[in-house]
C-alpha cells in the first residue's frame, strides 16, 4: 500500500482491506501515536464536508501531523479560476500526502495522475468515497466479529447511493448475502447485480423492509431524496416505507446493527437512537481510526 493512492475502493485488494482493519484496531486501542511527527498533510476540500474533513483532521492530529488546506473552494485560489491541475501541482510542493474532496467525478483520479504524492479521495461527486467504505467494513467486522457470510440489508436509495455501491463491491470479497430494499425507481443498478452474479453471490430484491429485516446482520440505511424521483406523488407514497422505526427492530437478531453513512434526514426515526442496535454514531468514531490506519499505511509508517 506504501505510496499508493486510494481513489476507488477497487484500487485496494482484500488483503489491503484486512490490513487496514487490523491497523485501525491498533489505533482504536492507542489512538495517539506520533508517527507523522510534524509531517504536513494537505486536506483540500473543494466543496465543504465538515464531518469528513474533521474526521481526517482528527486522524492527522492524533498521528502528530500538521494540516494545511482549505475548507471550501471559496476560500482558495480556485475561485480565481485556477485549474485543478495547477492547484495540485502547487500543493504537491507543500505536503506529504493529499486528501481531497471535489464536486466533480474523476477529480481524485486526475489529481493522482498529476502529483507524485499519494492521494486519498475523500469524495468525488457521486462517484467514490473509499474511506467511508473502509470504515463501514471496520464497523461491520467490529460488531459482528467477522466479515464473512453476513446478511446485509441495504435500504433506501440504492440507485444513486455511492456508499452502498462501494460497500457492495468490498463485501463481495467476503461472501455476503445481499438484500436490496428500495422503491422501484431507486433499485440497485444492473451492473452491481451482474457483478454479484459473476462472483456467485446471492441477492434478493424487495420493496418492503418487513420481508427481510429479521434476517439482517447489518441494516444499512441510506437517504431517500425527493429530487431523485421523477414523480413527486411516487415519492410521497413511498417515503415512509423506508423509514426505520424502533418497533421494527423487535424481531431482529441479537447481533443486528443499524448503520448509516450520515447525515440522516428522517430515514431513521430518533426513537431508534437509544436502541443498542443503533450503531451509526459509533460508526463515525471508527472513521477516525480507519483514516489513521490508511494514512499511516500509505506513508509507510506502519507495515
Amino acid at each position: 500500500m506504501k505510496n499508493k493512492s486510494l481513489v476507488s475502493i477497487v484500487d485496494f485488494s482484500k488483503t489491503d482491506y484486512l490490513k487496514i482493519l487490523s491497523t485501525a484496531a491498533e489505533f482504536e486501542k492507542n489512538s495517539y501515536q506520533n508517527l507523522l511527527n510534524g509531517k504536513v498533510i494537505a486536506t483540500l476540500f473543494f466543496e465543504p464536508s465538515t464531518r469528513t474533513r474533521l474526521s481526517f483532521e482528527s486522524a492527522i492530529n492524533r498521528l502528530g501531523g500538521r494540516v494545511i488546506g482549505f475548507t471550501d473552494s471559496s476560500s482558495s485560489s480556485v475561485t480565481k479560476g485556477e485549474t485543478l491541475y495547477d492547484t495540485i501541482r502547487v500543493i504537491s510542493n507543500y505536503s506529504e500526502l493529499i486528501v481531497m474532496r471535489h464536486p466533480l467525478e474523476g477529480s481524485a483520479r486526475y489529481a493522482s495522475e498529476i502529483t507524485q504524492l499519494p492521494v486519498i479521495n475523500a469524495g468525488d461527486g457521486a462517484n467514490q468515497h473509499p474511506t467511508q467504505t473502509l470504515l463501514d467494513l471496520y464497523s461491520i467486522q467490529k460488531t459482528q466479529g467477522k466479515l464473512n457470510n453476513l446478511n446485509i440489508v441495504m435500504v433506501g436509495d440504492l440507485k444513486y447511493g455511492r456508499t452502498v455501491h462501494s460497500l457492495l463491491m468490498a463485501l463481495s470479497e467476503f461472501d455476503a448475502n445481499f438484500y436490496f430494499i428500495s422503491p422501484d425507481e431507486l433499485k440497485m443498478p444492473d451492473e452491481y447485480k451482474l457483478h454479484l452474479e459473476k462472483t456467485g453471490l446471492s441477492y434478493h430484491e424487495s420493496r418492503d423492509l418487513d420481508d427481510t429485516i429479521n434476517e439482517a446482520d447489518i441494516i444499512y440505511m441510506t437517504r431517500v431524496q425527493k429530487e431523485r424521483f421523477s414523480d413527486p406523488i411516487e415519492y410521497e407514497k413511498t417515503r415512509n416505507a423506508y423509514v426505520l422505526k424502533n418497533d421494527m427492530l423487535k424481531g431482529t437478531r441479537n447481533n443486528t446493527k443499524v448503520l448509516h453513512p450520515l447525515p440522516r434526514v428522517n430515514e431513521i426515526d430518533i426513537g431508534v437512537d437509544m436502541n443498542p442496535k443503533a450503531y451509526y454514531f459509533e460508526q463515525t468514531e471508527n472513521g477516525v481510526y480507519v483514516r489513521q490506519a490508511i494514512i499511516s499505511l500509505i506513508l509507510g509508517l506502519k507495515s
Binding site: 476507488s8 485543478l84 466533480l104 467525478e105 474523476g106 477529480s107 483520479r109 486526475y110 468525488d124 461527486g125
Partner: peptide, 27 residues
C-alpha cells in the same frame, strides 16, 4: 472532470461488440 478541465479522455472498452466505454476518471 474531463468535461471541465483540458484533459485527454481515457476509456476502457468494456464491451467491444456493442461498444461501451468506461471512463477511467468518473467510472
Amino acid at each position: 472532470i474531463t468535461n471541465h478541465e483540458k484533459i485527454p479522455t481515457k476509456f476502457i472498452v468494456v464491451d467491444k461488440r456493442d461498444i461501451a466505454l468506461r471512463c477511467i476518471y468518473c467510472e
